[in-house]
Design a protein around this nucleic acid. Structure first.
Length: 230
DNA sequence: AACCAGGACGTGA
DNA sequence: TCACGTCATGGT
């Protein structure tokens, strides 16, 4: 039940987060002026995305680019790709790795990410339905968190994402131990809240928003108000 | 000027 | 299985 209360408290505190951000959305996120970082591309209370296969592919590209990288850097890379009309599985899969690498340079790890974007482009072209988690995990460059991100935001499948922030917060709240494994944490959360992709999407985004405020460097996690409500 | 961000992979014990 | 090194730019 604590995980339910945490969700409700975070939603009350920060509002709907409108993930996953998309380049085509100018500023539906204007209702949330307190959000940290960029507010471009978010679409609070609008769960219709992705509306096209290209939007779906954009999300998938984003999940790979944002691995261990700030979203502001990913935005720069996505805009560079967009200018060349390369947020397209066919076009990106036909591109030279060196060209992609140069365009996504701001997102870091550009050599390996370029290779993986081309691979995922080829995979996407052949993919005609919702993939399974196991299928995604077989792709080079897609680990547990990225697989869950793709399922949850690109395919609206209720697969909860466990990231470093989730681990940090739940550890601080003594709901898990430091050495808890990815799948243990995932199961704990999924068994505690309704199996609804909208709730999963919001919850993960709220965790990120909250952690940016209380769990990053130079910020005191002891000020986290969640400890008082669970 | 270190330190870290919406991780994953390859290697060796 | 698990710990560790590697990949890399941009903001604080």
């Amino acid at each position: 039940m604590p995980l339910q209360k945490i969700y409700k408290q975070l939603l009350k505190e920060y509002g709907h987060q409108g993930w996953w951000p998309l380049l085509s959305i100018e500023n539906e996120g204007g209702e949330n002026p307190t959000k940290t970082g960029s507010i471009k591309g978010y679409h609070p209370k609008n769960y219709s995305h992705p509306r096209t296969e290209l939007e779906r592919f954009e999300i998938i590209i984003g999940t790979i680019l944002t691995q261990n990288t700030s979203w502001t850097n990913v935005e720069k890379a996505l805009i560079n790709l967009e200018k060349e009309n390369l947020i397209d599985p066919k076009k990106i899969s036909e591109s030279k790795k060196e060209k992609i690498a140069e365009l996504i340079r701001p997102a870091g790890y550009f050599n390996q990410k370029a290779e993986r974007l081309i691979l995922v482009g080829n995979w996407f072209l052949a993919q005609k339905q919702t993939p399974t988690r196991e299928e995604l995990l077989q792709l080079k460059g897609i680990g547990p968190e990225t697989a869950d991100s793709i399922l949850l935001y690109a395919y609206k499948e209720p697969s909860f994402i466990v990231d470093a922030y989730t681990r940090r917060i739940l550890t601080n709240l003594n709901l898990i131990t430091e050495n808890a494994k990815y799948d243990e944490i995932k199961q704990l959360i999924e068994s505690s809240i309704p199996k609804d992709f909208k709730i999963y999407q919001e919850y993960h985004a709220l965790i990120v928003e909250h952690a940016k405020r209380y769990y990053t460097k130079n910020k005191n996690k002891d000020n986290c108000f969640l400890k008082a409500i669970i």
